[in-house]
């Protein structure tokens, strides 16, 4: 355990009746690190965040946040963490300004006292300060919820799926804000189902079915994908997919944006071999390029194991 760790979790397990939500999850997050938990809905992200925010008690294992035990020291810990639950938890019938000053007062502080921390975010919604939170767009709600979670200057910020259901533009802006907060020295744990957001984190944990499959930097995760990967395009994408799946040597075939990501069972594969096969199968405009894997490729490879 590093002395500089902000969050340390050791073999956390949690079950709800017969459903296993978390199984032996261990990891640590450094101070000032931006750490992402990447995984689909139901993978255990929310349960993990609720344990770290003292809302749930783990069945086994233990966790420390900012040096405090999440079960024993929960009262002290609650003063130090900022938490934004999955649904933006705002009072819909209170205005932007009222929500903010309410959450400030709950933590025994004032908006003025910590305004410097939230200024960058809050100025974007300040023009709507007298609007009811329920009437804000998704992106605005997200910014207000983040301001509320920050208003007491927490040392650790836990954001559970802050970008779910928010459009691509707002998501981008949100990540920019997180990067700025990181530079202010706040440790940030964020969960997301969007694989493309992994690249923005210092380190990520890939989580599926309650198990932490891999924890590393995005670059290392990508490099750990050890099979040659090809990006293939052709005129008719659906036929390309089905044809490749019918190829006896195909290991994995997944649609990926504009191309199809392909790995082969053989150790030595030349793009020309694939082009040959596809053209013989009647596909046109075939292009095969060796490419580097992304976090999503790695995630799917781990899921397949």
């Amino acid at each position: 355990m590093s002395a500089n760790a902000s969050v340390v979790a050791t073999e956390l397990s949690k079950a709800f009746k017969a459903t296993r939500a978390l199984a032996d999850v261990s990891f640590s997050v450094e101070r000032g690190e931006l750490f992402g938990f990447i995984g689909p809905d139901g993978s255990g992200k929310t349960t993990l965040f609720r344990i770290l925010t003292t809302l749930l008690v783990p069945d086994a294992g233990e966790a420390f946040v900012d040096g405090l035990h999440v079960v024993r020291d929960y009262r002290e810990l609650r003063k130090r963490i900022g938490y934004m639950p999955g649904r933006f938890s705002l009072y819909q019938d209170l205005t932007v300004a009222e929500n903010l000053s309410f959450f400030a007062s709950v933590f025994g502080t004032t908006v003025e006292e910590n305004y410097d921390l939230i200024r960058d975010i809050y100025v974007q919604i300040e023009p709507f300060r007298d609007r009811k939170a329920g009437k804000l767009s998704g992106g605005m709600k997200q910014k207000l919820a983040l301001s509320c979670a920050l208003i007491h200057r927490p040392t650790v910020l836990l954001l559970d799926e802050p970008t779910t259901g928010v459009d691509a533009v707002s998501r981008r802006e949100f990540w920019d804000m997180l990067l700025r907060l990181k530079s202010a020295g706040i440790s940030i744990l964020v969960s997301t189902p969007y694989m493309d957001e992994a690249r923005l984190c210092d380190r990520v944990g890939l989580i599926q079915n309650g198990t932490l499959m891999q924890v590393d930097t995005p670059a290392n995760i990508e490099n750990s994908f050890d099979r040659p990967l090809f990006g293939i395009t052709a005129q008719d994408r659906y036929r390309l997919l089905t044809t490749l799946r019918g190829y006896p040597f195909a290991n994995s075939v997944y649609a990926f944006g504009e191309s199809v990501h392909y790995t082969d069972r053989r150790n030595e594969v030349e793009p020309s071999m694939l082009v040959d096969f596809l053209q013989k199968s009647g596909l046109t405009d075939v292009a095969v390029r060796p490419i580097g894997a992304g976090v999503e490729d790695a995630f799917m490879a781990l899921m397949d194991e």
Binding site: T53, T54, L55, I81, Y83, P85, S89, L90
Partner: peptide, 9 residues
């Protein structure tokens, strides 16, 4: 609303 979570924390 989920605000209870925030209050509890």
């Amino acid at each position: 609303l989920g605000t209870m979570e925030v209050l509890l924390v």
